[in-house]
Measured scan of single mutants.
Amino acid sequence: SPPKPKTIVLPPNWKTARDPEGKIYYYHVITRQTQWDPPTWESPGDDAS
């Protein structure tokens, strides 16, 4: 059997959903933003550039 996916701790107000093909995506319940990649926690002042 395939390994279980890691449990991802989502930031507040993010949910997972499935598209009609069964792929998992993520959406923000307030902004209605959707994305394929797991959302990352906002870390103020932490600039990755």
Rank of each mutant, 00 (worst) to 15 (best):
S1Y: 03
S1G: 01
S1T: 01
S1K: 10
S1C: 12
S1P: 04
S1R: 08
S1N: 15
S1D: 15
S1Q: 02
P2N: 15
P2W: 06
P2M: 12
P2I: 15
P2V: 10
P2K: 10
P2A: 14
P2G: 13
P3T: 14
P3I: 14
P3H: 14
P3A: 08
P3L: 14
P3R: 15
K4M: 11
K4W: 01
K4C: 03
K4T: 06
K4F: 04
K4Y: 11
K4A: 01
P5F: 14
P5A: 14
P5I: 13
P5T: 15
P5H: 08
P5G: 14
K6H: 13
K6M: 12
K6G: 13
K6L: 05
T7E: 11
T7K: 15
T7C: 11
T7D: 09
T7S: 14
T7L: 07
T7H: 14
T7W: 04
I8E: 10
I8A: 10
I8S: 14
I8R: 13
I8C: 14
V9K: 12
V9S: 10
V9G: 08
V9W: 07
V9Y: 05
V9H: 10
L10Q: 03
L10M: 06
L10R: 02
L10A: 01
L10D: 04
L10I: 11
L10C: 08
L10Y: 07
L10H: 07
P11D: 08
P11N: 05
P11C: 02
P11R: 06
P11Q: 08
P11Y: 02
P11K: 06
P12D: 12
P12F: 05
P12S: 08
P12N: 06
P12H: 03
N13Y: 14
N13Q: 09
N13E: 03
W14L: 00
W14V: 01
W14Q: 01
W14K: 00
W14I: 01
W14H: 03
K15Y: 15
K15S: 05
T16M: 15
T16V: 15
T16P: 05
T16I: 09
T16K: 11
T16S: 15
T16Y: 08
A17I: 08
A17V: 07
A17D: 10
A17Y: 09
A17P: 02
A17E: 06
R18I: 10
R18F: 04
R18L: 05
R18H: 06
R18N: 13
R18V: 07
D19K: 02
D19W: 00
D19A: 03
D19H: 12
D19I: 03
D19F: 00
D19V: 05
D19Q: 04
D19T: 14
D19N: 12
D19L: 04
P20K: 14
P20T: 12
P20V: 06
P20Q: 12
P20Y: 05
E21P: 00
E21T: 07
E21Y: 03
G22V: 01
K23N: 03
K23S: 06
K23V: 06
K23H: 02
K23R: 12
K23T: 09
K23F: 02
K23M: 03
K23D: 04
I24T: 07
I24S: 03
I24H: 03
Y25Q: 04
Y25S: 02
Y25N: 00
Y25I: 05
Y25V: 05
Y26E: 00
Y26L: 01
Y26C: 01
Y26F: 06
Y26D: 03
Y26W: 04
Y27G: 02
Y27C: 03
Y27A: 03
Y27E: 06
Y27N: 03
Y27D: 04
H28S: 01
H28Y: 03
H28V: 00
H28F: 00
H28M: 00
H28D: 07
V29I: 07
V29H: 08
V29R: 04
V29W: 03
V29Y: 07
I30N: 11
I30A: 06
I30K: 09
I30T: 12
I30G: 06
I30D: 08
I30L: 10
I30W: 04
T31M: 01
T31R: 04
T31G: 00
R32T: 00
R32Q: 11
R32K: 14
R32L: 06
R32V: 00
Q33H: 03
Q33D: 08
Q33V: 07
Q33S: 04
Q33E: 13
Q33Y: 00
Q33N: 09
Q33I: 03
T34Y: 03
T34M: 15
T34W: 08
T34S: 05
T34L: 05
T34I: 09
T34C: 10
T34H: 11
T34R: 14
Q35S: 11
Q35Y: 04
Q35K: 05
Q35H: 10
Q35D: 01
Q35N: 01
W36Q: 09
W36K: 12
W36R: 14
W36D: 12
D37N: 06
D37F: 02
D37T: 14
D37W: 07
D37R: 07
D37I: 12
P38F: 09
P38G: 02
P38R: 07
P38I: 09
P38Y: 07
P38M: 11
P38L: 05
P38D: 01
P39D: 01
P39E: 00
P39K: 00
P39L: 00
P39S: 02
P39Q: 02
T40F: 07
T40E: 14
T40I: 02
T40M: 12
T40C: 14
T40W: 07
W41Y: 15
W41S: 15
W41K: 15
W41I: 13
W41V: 13
W41L: 13
W41G: 12
W41R: 13
E42G: 11
E42V: 09
E42T: 05
E42H: 14
E42L: 04
S43N: 05
S43A: 11
S43G: 09
S43Q: 13
S43E: 15
S43K: 14
S43F: 05
S43D: 13
P44V: 07
P44M: 12
P44K: 09
P44T: 10
P44N: 08
P44I: 04
G45L: 13
G45F: 12
G45D: 11
G45P: 15
G45M: 10
D46A: 13
D46G: 09
D46Q: 05
D46K: 08
D46F: 05
D46C: 06
D46I: 08
D46S: 08
D47I: 05
D47K: 08
D47F: 04
D47S: 13
D47L: 10
A48F: 10
A48R: 14
A48E: 13
A48T: 14
A48W: 10
A48C: 13
S49R: 08
S49C: 04
S49N: 02
S49M: 09
S49Y: 08
S49H: 06
S49L: 08
S49D: 02
